[in-house]
Design a binder for these strands. Structure first.
Lengths: 226, 226
DNA sequence: GCGACTTTGTTCCTGCGTTCACAAGCGGTT
DNA sequence: AACCGCTTGTGAACGCAGGAACAAAGTCGC
C-alpha cells in the first residue's frame, strides 16, 4: 500500500499553515480572489519559497502563472488543520491568565470552544467568565466525559500543574496546552505543548543585551577609548 | 584578537538556560548544594547530553565526578541572561490578556518590571492594575524616555499593532514581545518576538487529529473491517 | 598513594528545517 | 497557433539543532 502523500507534515509547517489561514481570511475579507506566494508570504512574514514548500505538503493547489485561489486554499488549509469542526476545550486555573484566555475572542473564531472552566479555590467557583461558570475540580471528569472535550489548557500555579495534567489525562483529554512553568509528563497518547511567557521575555532581554555587548566590542575594535 | 569563547549563544540554548535557571532556583530552595546533569535535565525536561552542551557555552562550570554547584551555576546563568539587573518594560493594550500579564507575578520575580501601562480607550485610562495606572498612549514616549524602558509588550488588537510597534521603536524601545496575530516589521536594531496563542492551540489540535487518523489507518492495515 | 567509579566536556554524526535556484506549466497576446 | 512573461512546484545545498558515544578529570575508598 503506497501512501500517495506522506501524512506527516512537519510541525513547523503546521504552525505556519495556521498563520497562512489567518492571512487568507484577511485577503478574502478584502475581496481578493487570488494571491501569489509572494503576497501571501509578505502578509505572513515568511519567505516565499518556504511558503510554497509548506503548501506543497497539501498537494498542488495553485495555478502557475496566476497564483492561489484565496477561497480554495483557505478551505483546504482549514480542512487539513481540522478547523472545520469545533473543538471542545477545558481550562483549569482561573487566575488572571486563565480568565484572559477564557475570554479571548481569538479562540472562538478559530473553532475552539471552552466548555468548562475549573479552579480549586472555592472563592472563584461560580464566577461567570466568557459565558461559562467556574466549576470545582471535582466536576472535571464528568464535564470531559459528557462534552467529549479533547483539549485541556493548564493555567494553574506550577506546583499543582502535574496533578492537573494527570487528572486531565485520566479524564480522557488527548492534548494539553501548558502555561505553567514546569515540564509535564503525560501518558503515551497525550500530547503536551508548553508556552512559557517568562522565557520569551528572557530570551528577548538576552538578545537585546547581546546586541549592546556586540556593539560595545565592535566600537572598541574600531578604536574607541577604553 | 582571539575571542576565547564565541559570544553567539544559539537562541534555542538561551531559551533552555532560562528554564535551567528556574529549576536551579527550585533546587536551591530545596537545600541542594550540587546537582548532576541528569537530575537537572529531568527537572527541566530535556536530554542530559543536550543540557551539558548548553552549559558548555558558558565555559566549564561543573566538577567532574561530582556535578554542578547549584548556587554558582545559578549565578552564572543569571549573569549571562542579564537577570541580575531589573529591566523596565512597558505594556500597550490593556485588554484581558494585557491585564493578566501586567498582574503576572512570574515577571517581577525574574527581573522584569512594568513601568507603564497604556491603552487607547479612554474608558480604561486611570484603572489601576498590578500597582500601575493605565495611561493614554500620548504619554508613551515620555515614559519610555524617563524610565529608560528597553522592552515593550504589545497586547493590542491586530489592526493597531503595527502602529504601536512604530511608536515603541520611535520612543527608543529595543525589544518587542508581540501577542497580536500579525507579523510586525521594525527598524534595524529592534528585535521582535512573537507569541501566537491561537497557533499553539491549532498545532495541538492538528497533532491530536493526526494521531487519530494514523490510528485509524493502522487499524485498517491490521485488517479491521472497512 | 593508588585504583576504580562517577560525571563532565567534547566530538562525531544523523536528521531536519530553511534557502536558493531552476525546470515545468498556464494565461494572455499577437 | 505560437510566443512570452509570470508563477508554481521541486530538487539540491547549506546551516543548525539534537543525540549518542568517548575521552578527560576529579573524588572516594582502601
Amino acid at each position: 500500500m503506497i501512501q500517495p502523500r506522506p501524512r506527516t507534515i512537519p510541525e513547523a509547517t503546521v504552525a505556519r499553515l495556521a498563520v497562512y489561514l489567518r492571512a487568507l481570511t484577511t485577503f478574502a475579507e478584502g475581496g481578493r480572489s487570488t494571491v501569489s506566494s509572494g503576497e501571501l508570504a509578505e502578509a505572513a512574514g515568511v519567505n516565499p519559497a518556504g511558503l510554497r514548500k509548506d503548501l506543497s505538503h497539501l498537494g498542488p493547489c495553485g495555478v502557475r502563472g496566476v497564483g492561489y485561489e484565496v477561497q480554495t486554499l483557505r478551505d483546504r488549509i482549514a480542512r487539513v488543520l481540522g478547523v472545520e469542526r469545533s473543538r471542545a476545550c477545558v481550562l483549569v486555573g482561573i487566575g488572571n491568565l486563565g480568565s484572559a484566555l477564557a475570554d479571548y475572542a481569538g479562540f472562538g473564531s478559530r473553532g475552539f470552544e471552552f466548555v468548562g472552566l475549573f479552579d480549586a479555590a472555592t472563592a472563584r467557583i461560580g464566577q461567570r467568565i466568557g459565558g461559562q461558570t467556574v466549576r470545582p475540580l471535582d466536576e472535571l471528569a464528568d464535564v470531559v466525559a459528557t462534552t467529549q472535550a479533547s483539549i485541556g489548557v493548564i493555567t494553574t500555579p506550577a506546583d499543582v500543574a502535574q496533578s492537573v495534567c494527570d487528572r486531565l489525562a485520566a479524564a480522557g483529554v488527548r492534548s494539553i496546552l501548558n502555561f505553567a512553568p514546569v515540564p509535564l509528563v503525560a501518558p503515551a497518547g497525550v500530547d503536551v505543548r508548553k508556552v512559557d511567557l517568562s522565557v520569551e521575555l528572557q530570551v528577548l532581554a538576552f538578545l537585546g543585551q547581546q546586541r549592546l555587548d556586540d556593539a560595545a566590542v565592535d566600537g572598541a575594535a574600531l578604536g574607541e577609548p577604553a
